[in-house]
Nucleic acid binder design. Structure first.
Lengths: 192, 192
DNA sequence: GTGCTTTCTTAACATACATCAATGTAAGGC
DNA sequence: GCCTTACATTGATGTATGTTAAGAAAGCAC
């Protein structure tokens, strides 16, 4: 199974060769079509996804039916609703595929077992959590302290490739503004 | 050392009795006065704080000199700038004491060592990280999708005790609005 | 190709929130 | 006690962003 995930475990997570087959055996692969729903509100999230190819998205829908995008997961990212996965509580969020996506699927038990088997995996798992916290903290800081324009500039600086793959209204949703506002922000920027 | 922290490790973290003395030996205690600065911008964060009594705060200051509050830590909470502590990068945030505070101080090495010694500690440490992520995700969701009024109501519902201990302008700063706006939001609520 | 849907832009207008300035009030220093 | 400082409120006004509606451009189905 010389997949992207396998290579990721080897090259990036630095899982020792002897442990690799053990881990690889425990996961399954899934082909998703654009638009497929992986998690819905009220459901308890049982899976974690590793994106080999494609793009996933985590979002909420408010009382007025508006979507608010919490997170994107392109290639080599993990995606899950951790709050629901780890604590077993019903999710208030949705996960779906924004493109046809090849993903590796596993559950919390896999993470726990992998951490038992491979210290390297355990270390990397903590790294992922810490990094996630750092990134969210930065985002919160921008949301409470920066203008829409600044948030937009930060977004395209951080995820230039992503910005080319998703419609603008999704960027707007991620930034916490309307598509119309983002359009104006962009016009303001080009005129500078 | 029958301190709050000791009891916390025993009762909440469920560290085994035999491990407790080992862990307790490695930490030091600090008395802080209101206003004391524990971490400043540009500095690499070396410490994690456990608040036994008092209140700490993590915040940023933007180019216009405005403070934006990322997090509060009252009794029995851990406080640190994880991005800086874990990754060793210079902090863009500040930490200070909002009240006279009794805190236990330790470093990342303590966390690693404690995780080696006590599986219960390791488990609890991951619990803390997961919980932090869940809480930040919820906050991001409110920041991008809810009005100031709704965010305020969520805040006082979640931290009713905190709201009594800090000035209103700090709540406003945490919510990402001005003190004047919060004052108006509150007036609107009392008139309902 | 034709039609249908989605996305993006633009404009006019509405609203939430920010800014500036003044006042009131309460708390702490001494 | 008085003075100072920090905090909260209020009003007038400004600005960023939301709302509604329309049209153009691009993508997709058939």
């Amino acid at each position: 199974m010389e997949s992207t995930f396998y290579n990721y475990l080897k090259k990036k997570v630095l899982v020792k060769s002897e442990h690799l087959p053990l881990l690889a055996r425990e996961v399954s692969k899934k082909m998703l079509s654009k638009g497929d729903l992986l998690l819905t509100e009220g459901q308890v999230c049982k899976n974690m996804f590793f994106v080999e190819q494609g793009l996933l998205r985590l979002y909420s829908i408010d009382e007025e039916g508006r979507e608010h995008i919490i997170q994107f997961a392109p290639e080599n990212w993990f995606m899950s609703e951790r709050g629901s996965l780890y604590f077993g509580s019903p999710s208030v969020f949705f996960i779906d595929a924004l493109e046809d996506t090849k993903a590796v699927v596993f559950d919390q038990q896999f993470v726990d077992r992998a951490s038992e088997i491979s210290p390297e995996y355990r270390t990397y798992n903590e790294y992922i959590l810490q990094n996630h916290i750092r990134q969210m903290q930065k985002r919160i800081n921008l949301l409470i302290g920066a203008t829409a324009e600044k948030r937009y500039l930060e977004f395209i600086k951080l995820y230039p490739d992503l910005a080319m793959r998703i419609p603008q209204w999704m960027i707007a949703s991620y930034l916490g503004i309307t598509p119309e506002s983002l359009s104006r922000v962009r016009r303001g920027l080009t005129q500078k």
